[in-house]
Amino acid sequence: MDLDLQGDLIKHPYDAYRHLRDTAPVQRIAGPTGEPAWLVTRYDDVRSALADPRLSLDKANAAESSYRGLFLPPALDANLLNMDPPDHTRLRRLVSRAFTPRRVEALRAPIRRTADRLLDALGTEGRTDLIAAYAAPLPITVICDLLGIPDDQRKDFRAWTNELISPDPSRLQGAKQAGGAMLAFFAELIAYKRRHPADDLLSDLIAVRDSDGDRLSEDELTSLAFLILGAGFENTVQLIGNALHVLLSHPEHLARLRTDPSKLPEAIEELARYEGPALLAIRRFTTEDVTIADVTVPAGETVLLSLSAANRDPARFPHPERLDFERDASGHLALGHGIHYCLGAPLARAEAEIALAALLERFSSLTLTDCEPRWRPSLRARGLLTLPVEYKAAQPIA
């Protein structure tokens, strides 16, 4: 089957994935820059492959002709998404303390204050783009606060990541420029935090590097900061934005959450399954010949695991095209599985819950003003460019 990547897997991914699950659950395709890759679409196969140690994230295991994913400068490429154990285990342990349930619980009040401040700026009624005004600035503020990035050093991070995730080969130069700009930013930021350490995650990571240099190299420090920032807001922007779009497209479900907001945590799991923040997991490379669904993928080749196709697999989730808040959506793969499961998942869930609760409390009326969604041009990220709405407050703001 020949797939038009720009059309099939960006504009209409679920139709393409449904066809592949039924006819070719492990399909060889051309990656965005022309190199070959294997696309896996069934739930059981994707979940098993996510935890298979024979599928490596280390680019050193990729054949010369294989698709290798995003272009990044070497100092940013030395991150957890390009590592296997034992290096992955060591670095993940260093940063995991920032996302413990206790730490996330302590962040809930500041997250709510940020949400309320953003909603205050909207006033009592009007029109806005909820991505630009709310779904994007909330997670960016949260992760910048966590890392300790001063207000005057915060940049338009999404402009950089938009360039990095673009599947258009003609924009490779833009991706290189974005990567260079991000590297310069983090080099300056780390130098600043060395001069001005504080009670924040980046200062903690710098202290580990400075006191025990053989545990955290300079490139590891820089790439960790890059990954925490990028992953810390990208997935959450898309989780919140997609959830809002789905709810506004299903007013009966929106009304149920208004009536009983205690259902929000369970609803977020179903919303993540239904329209998660990523189409694909990070690309993987076979370290030996690996058989998936009776198809043998040779050593050194690239495997793309479709999280969104797995989450719409009727063999795992009956009637998967139906949004159902009574469904047990546990086991969805929207935030990954195995040792590379999203480290910031507890924080992303908390932000989504708080963001939706604050918005529903504030506005009694929320209506889409453009029902044709505009998705980001990416094979991996699943997120909206805009979410135009008309809104009206439940009551005057005191």
Rank of each mutant, 00 (worst) to 15 (best):
E218P: 01
E218H: 10
T222P: 05
L224G: 02
L224R: 00
F226D: 02
I228A: 03
L229D: 04
G230K: 02
A231W: 08
A231Y: 04
G232H: 02
F233Q: 04
N235Y: 02
N235P: 07
N235R: 10
T236V: 10
T236L: 05
T236P: 02
T236N: 01
V237Y: 01
Q238Y: 06
Q238H: 15
L239S: 09
I240F: 00
G241H: 07
N242G: 01
N242R: 00
A243W: 06
V246T: 14
L247P: 00
L254E: 13
A255V: 10
R256S: 15
L257E: 06
L257F: 03
R258K: 15
T259S: 15
T259M: 13
P261Y: 10
K263A: 15
L264F: 13
L264C: 12
I268E: 08
E269F: 00
E270A: 05
L271K: 05
L271Q: 08
A272N: 10
R273Y: 02
R273M: 05
Y274C: 08
P277N: 05
A278S: 12
L279Y: 08
L279H: 14
L279C: 05
L280I: 11
L280S: 06
F285C: 10
F285N: 09
F285L: 13
T286D: 08
T286F: 09
T287L: 13
E288F: 11
V290A: 05
V290Q: 05
V290L: 10
V290H: 07
T291M: 05
T291D: 10
T291K: 03
A293K: 07
A293M: 11
P298E: 14
A299V: 13
G300T: 09
T302W: 01
L304Q: 02
L305R: 00
S308L: 14
S308Y: 03
A310I: 06
A310S: 07
N311K: 00
R312H: 15
P314Q: 02
P314F: 12
A315Y: 07
F317V: 07
F317P: 01
